[in-house]
Design a protein around this nucleic acid. Structure first.
Length: 293
DNA sequence: ATTGATTCCTGGTTTACGTCA
DNA sequence: GTTGACGTAAACCAGGAATCA
């Protein structure tokens, strides 16, 4: 029996985990007292420290069953945040000089550019924001570098809510002396980075699980060989015992099942020589000690 | 019920900028 | 001091989903 045998069963082995930090959406109440789902992000400090207490959960299911539920939930975004949003924050940072460099802009882009021009006009009159400094940029994509104070405030806001409604966005933009569009882009990129980091953490975890399961597979192979050897030794006791009823202590690697791992017979039915033990679902958890010990 | 417009999102990409050898 | 490689993050694009008229 090898990995190939396992893969040909038509079953799906799912690996997931839960942690003290919520990953699943939960209901929260926004400022308008409207219940909505909201993705709660892992605390970045916890991530960095690796201090999250992940509890692995392995599931065996038919193809298409709920293995992806976590990720489906994670990718689901509630759009109620923006219900009733107006166009006020539709501002693009691309400057007028850059517009001509896109010869085949879509209708959508043209619409946005029109609104951008309108807003730009307003801003030029009413403020001295960063965009004013970009006037000299030859290609219109002068890159802003946020100050530490701006980044800190954005991070603080992101900790409170990973998405912004238009009002929050405008308010934050005003506080930071940035355009609403810049705040919006920052949050989009920040969410993407969070997700990427979480993916990396998941990947590392799965690698460790893979290593552990490989070791477990190796150990089970060894156990199988030992059982075959015993069977070949024509010992009637073991010939009457279904292999599935045998368990082995992962720690001491001794065979259990009616006989304790250290050799003593423990069941009353042993008088008959036939050991009768209820099949026990035993899925080895690589992160916990063996239940047999 | 259907459809088009609008808005924001995600996922991926581009690119300006800073750092370092 | 200059330069090229590289990483980071701001900005962008395409397409999807939700909502509304």
């Amino acid at each position: 029996m090898g990995v190939d045998d396992f893969c040909n069963t038509g079953l799906v082995l799912g690996l997931g985990f839960s942690s003290s930090a919520e990953v699943v959406p939960r209901k929260i109440i926004d400022e308008n007292q409207k219940p909505k789902t909201h993705l709660i992000n892992l605390d970045q400090q916890q991530l960095a420290k690796g201090s999250l207490n992940f509890e692995p959960s392995l599931t065996l299911s038919l193809p298409g069953e709920a293995f992806d539920q976590k990720f489906e939930n994670s990718s689901k975004v509630n759009h109620d945040n923006y219900k009733g949003a107006n166009c006020n924050d539709q501002y693009l940072s691309r400057q007028n000089s850059a517009i001509t460099s896109f010869s085949n802009v879509s209708v959508k882009r043209e619409r946005e550019i029109v609104s951008e021009e309108a807003e730009t006009t307003t801003e030029r009159v009413s403020s001295t924001r960063v965009s004013d400094e970009d006037e000299d940029s030859p290609n219109g994509r002068k890159k802003l570098r946020l100050t530490k104070a701006q980044s800190a405030l954005l991070e603080e806001s992101f900790k409170q809510h990973s998405t912004l409604n238009p009002k929050q966005k405008q308010e934050l933009a005003r506080e930071l002396n940035l355009r609403a569009r810049q705040v919006e882009v920052w949050f989009q990129n920040r969410r993407a980075r969070t997700k990427l980091k979480q993916t990396e953490v998941d990947c590392e975890f799965l690698k460790k699980c893979c290593d552990t399961l490989t070791d477990e597979n190796r150990r089970l192979h060894k156990e199988l060989q030992e059982l075959k050897a015993l069977k070949l030794g024509s010992q009637p006791f073991y010939m009457q015992m279904p292999a599935a009823t045998l368990t082995m202590c992962p720690a001491c690697e001794r065979i259990g099942g009616g006989i304790n791992p250290h050799g003593e017979t423990t069941t009353s039915s042993s008088k008959t020589g036939l050991i009768s033990i209820a099949p026990k679902s035993h899925f080895f958890n690589p992160f916990t000690k063996s239940a047999a010990c």
